[in-house]
Amino acid sequence: MQVGMTVNGEAHEADAEPRTLLVHHIREAVGLTGTNIGCDTSSCGACTIHIDGEPVKSCTMLAVQANGADITTIEGMAADDGTLHPMQQAFMENHGLQCGYCTPGMVMAATSLLQENPSPTEAEVRQGLEGNLCRCTGYHNIVKAVLAAAEGE
């Protein structure tokens, strides 16, 4: 099936088997590999992207369901001149990443979290990121980064 979507502001049209997961479509047909896959049970959040402004685990959707959608992936977060998004910058300044594998999903989920709740408490940050797993940081610096990003905004 032909599937069309806008990804990071660019129109993209490609063939997809009806059963293709959106995350595989984005990684392999669109060719944007920043969105990662950490599980097969929708548990880890590594694949989090924005669809029409909402955070979505892209392994929980079929590519065909995203037909016509406006998608933002981690590749679309930094400005064109390379300036990092404030959330990316906060992760960097607070050492909120180690191996970086959970990071794209964390950044996407955290950005949405602040859109919903611009000044969250620590507990609200933790709750808001509950669907995103990180094995490296123990979450300490991720939470710090999100709180710092909230302060900065």
Binding site: T73, F91, G100, T103
Partner: peptide, 10 residues
């Protein structure tokens, strides 16, 4: 190493 990990470039 952070910028490339934070942007999906890695």
């Amino acid at each position: 190493e952070d910028p490339k990990l934070l942007t999906g470039e890695a």
